[in-house]
Amino acid sequence: MTEGNFVDYVKIFAASGNGGSGSSHLHREKYVAKGGPDGGDGGRGGHIIVRGDENMWTLIHLKFKTHIRAEHGGSGSKNRSTGKSGDDQYIDVPLGTIVRDAETDEILFEITENGQETILVEGGMGGLGNWHFKSSTNQTPRYKQPGIPGAEGWFRLELKILADVGLVGFPNAGKSTLLSVLTSAKPKIADYPFTTLKPNLGIVKYRDFQSFVMADIPGIIEGAAEGKGLGHRFLRHIERNSLLLFMVSADSLDINNEYKILLNELKKHNPELLDKERILAISKCDLLDEELKKEIKKTLPKTIPHLFISSVAQINLDQLKDLIWKKLNE
């Protein structure tokens, strides 16, 4: 998936259908002069329904279709015939999509399962026909109920990507390069910060035809939790990853301190992120000799497993996949 095709935020206007009007028909036949009321009910207006689709990875299909309207219900007719219900409108979204009220910012619901359907805006109920109002004191009522109008509003859809492994690191830590080497994804790669502006996904093939999904998330900078850099736009994606692969470049002045800064930004954004499994990868290790590696190892945190890797020189990549697979299946 190219970066330009990945859309993780859209604002839409959704309007359900109006309910159809009831009928005030009076029954008439050749030999039945006064058959009484037989007006049918109006049909229900169409719902707007959000539906999960495991084959989708982006909200790009909604980027240029921001107004979604359902069909109105049909009017009732004679012989107590109910009007046609309006067709529902379905909004298919990737798994991990959160739906918010655009005005209040309240989270309405989340879509996490394939085929999950949740009504976003209910269609209006159809009005009752005049036969409902017949009584001993009113044998021929000539009134009916109008249909109930549908509802409408602005909503915000946000995608938190569902991936097994999320790459966490400062800009230019080598995250995109690793993704391009381990998967068939083609993220933008360059030697300047913030090359990656939107998350990229790739499927890593493992032994015995197994696989797992890896997400390259735009680089963190200090203060990201307060909105600096790309701020909350990317931090929310980390919440859905099963395992976090922290990447720190071997040419960093202080690898341990850089790891602590990354960890602190995640903690400020959402303390629950610290409960996830973590692996530390020191990238671009082809720049180091064995003596430097030994010196760096002494400074690394003892609480998480670590590996020296190089995507370009293909160093320890199989060992990294083995470690990831082990952590994912513990």
Rank of each mutant, 00 (worst) to 15 (best):
G20T: 04
G20F: 06
S21F: 08
S23D: 09
S23F: 01
L26M: 14
L26F: 09
H27P: 02
R28P: 06
R28N: 12
K30N: 08
A33P: 08
A33Q: 11
G35K: 12
G36M: 07
G36W: 05
P37M: 06
D38Q: 11
G40P: 02
G40L: 04
D41S: 11
G43T: 06
G43I: 02
R44C: 13
R44S: 10
R44M: 15
G46N: 07
G46A: 11
H47V: 06
I48D: 02
I49E: 07
V50A: 06
V50W: 02
R51L: 10
R51C: 13
G52Y: 04
G52W: 01
D53S: 14
E54P: 01
E54C: 07
N55L: 11
M56C: 07
M56H: 08
T58H: 00
I60K: 12
H61L: 05
L62N: 02
L62G: 06
K63C: 13
F64D: 15
F64V: 14
F64Q: 14
K65M: 11
H67E: 14
H67S: 11
I68M: 09
I68L: 15
I68F: 06
A70K: 10
E71I: 13
H72S: 14
G74Q: 08
S77T: 15
K78A: 07
N79E: 14
N79T: 07
R80T: 11
S81K: 14
S81G: 08
S81N: 09
G83N: 00
K84A: 10
K84G: 00
S85E: 09
G86T: 03
D88R: 00
D88V: 03
Q89S: 11
Q89N: 03
Y90P: 00
I91C: 06
V93F: 03
P94D: 09
P94G: 05
T97N: 01
I98Y: 09
V99H: 01
V99T: 06
R100D: 00
R100P: 02
D101C: 11
D101L: 06
E103N: 09
E103H: 01
D105C: 03
E106H: 04
I107K: 11
I107P: 02
L108C: 08
I111M: 04
T112H: 09
T112A: 09
N114W: 05
Q116Y: 01
Q116A: 08
E117Y: 04
E117K: 14
T118W: 00
T118L: 13
T118S: 07
L120Y: 04
L120I: 07
V121Q: 09
V121I: 15
E122T: 13
G124I: 05
M125Q: 12
G127W: 04
L128G: 04
L128D: 00
L128W: 06
G129H: 03
N130F: 01
W131Y: 15
H132V: 04
F133Q: 12
F133S: 14
F133E: 13
K134G: 10
S135N: 12
S136P: 10
S136V: 12
T137E: 14
P141L: 10
R142E: 15
R142P: 01
Y143F: 14
